[in-house]
Computed example of a mutant assay.
Amino acid sequence: MSFNSNRTTYLKPLWFERLNVSESKELIRSYQTSVVYISVGYVVLTFLGRWWMRNRKPFKLRRPLIAWNLILAIFSTIGFWRTFPTFVALLTQPDGIYRSVCTYDYTSDTEAFWGLMYTISKLFEFVDTVFIVLRKAPLLFLHWFHHMSMAIFMFYLYPIGDPVGRWGGILNYGVHSIMYSYYSVKMGGFQVPKSVSSIITMLQMGQFVLTLFANVYALVMFGIGYPCALSNMTIFIQFVGGTSYLILFANYYYQTYVKLKPKSA
């Protein structure tokens, strides 16, 4: 089995996508400790907020929530549009899967820029929880744990830049583009079949399955002697994060769409 080492870029970077990758990695690395504190503070403030709201009427916030979901839907759609074509072009190569998880041949300014935006966006997604707290909507462990851990994980993964990370980021862009669009439509008062939300949950589980597959594949290739850009930090975060998220989302799916509940529920 042989591998072509020529670098190919399929999307020409737009003017705002050009960045110094080394500087962007150093920037994110310099905030790693701060993000840990911010993420812990996010959890503390979340539960303080729920305590503060316990005897207060919920805020409606319908229009701000629609606008917020639309912003995230548009952001995720653009991120997916700018990264997915190169990802597909890479995977359709004879050695595509290997190169997608083990080599830097297909990295580009476009991919690096949207990886940076993806990393930073995990902090902005904390705003999702603000709406939940102020509207007194149910707050699941899945929700705040996922937001907190993803922010920390991404600020440690981006500076490493292992190729396998593109699987999680690009797939998540795609799922979020659908998920936040769904939230926008639902908050807009449109009737959406319950099956749509269950499909979105399945897509979320699917991205974790594929990400775990990519990591296992990379480990296998490394184990049989092929060079693979895979660090111990990436292996740890991808497996711990991917496995925990898959279990939590699978449990949520079972509790919400499979388990029989009393009619009173």
Rank of each mutant, 00 (worst) to 15 (best):
L45V: 13
S108H: 02
V88A: 15
I237Y: 03
A89C: 14
N4W: 00
H143M: 10
M187Q: 06
L48H: 06
P227L: 03
F236S: 06
P163I: 02
Y158T: 05
R18W: 01
N172M: 10
Y182N: 07
Y254W: 12
S5G: 02
M233R: 08
K263M: 11
F131M: 00
N172E: 07
S181G: 14
W52S: 15
V36S: 12
F190D: 02
T46F: 06
D128H: 01
M205D: 11
F145I: 01
Y118A: 08
F84L: 15
S121A: 14
S34G: 05
Y10I: 05
L19E: 06
T234I: 06
I224K: 07
G242P: 03
G241I: 00
Q191F: 08
L48C: 15
V258K: 08
W167H: 14
P262C: 09
N55V: 03
V240S: 13
E125F: 05
S264P: 02
G241L: 07
L230K: 00
T103D: 09
F16R: 08
N6S: 14
Q238A: 15
T201A: 13
G225I: 05
S195W: 07
W81A: 15
Y253I: 02
E125T: 04
C102K: 02
F84T: 14
H176V: 00
L157I: 11
W144L: 08
I237R: 02
R135V: 02
F208L: 06
L203G: 07
N251P: 00
R63W: 12
P163R: 00
Y10A: 10
H176S: 04
K263G: 05
G225D: 10
A89K: 15
R29M: 11
T234G: 10
A112D: 13
I237G: 05
F239M: 12
M179N: 05
T8N: 09
F59L: 13
Y31K: 09
K263R: 12
F126G: 03
M202V: 15
S244W: 02
K57S: 13
S177I: 08
W144R: 09
L70I: 11
H147V: 05
Y253P: 06
T9L: 02
W51K: 14
V258I: 15
I160R: 07
K186W: 04
I170K: 09
V258T: 11
V258G: 05
Y31E: 04
L171M: 13
Y37V: 12
W144F: 15
F155E: 03
E17R: 08
V185G: 05
W167E: 12
L27T: 10
G242H: 00
R63I: 14
Y217D: 03
F80N: 06
R135L: 01
V127I: 11
S34C: 06
E17H: 08
F3E: 14
L210F: 14
Q204F: 03
M205A: 09
L116Y: 14
R56G: 01
L48R: 13
I237L: 11
V192R: 07
V130I: 04
E111R: 00
I120R: 04
V43L: 11
Y104D: 12
A218W: 03
V258D: 04
P138W: 08
E26P: 03
N251E: 14
T256C: 09
V185D: 04
Y104P: 02
Q93R: 14
Q238E: 13
L72E: 01
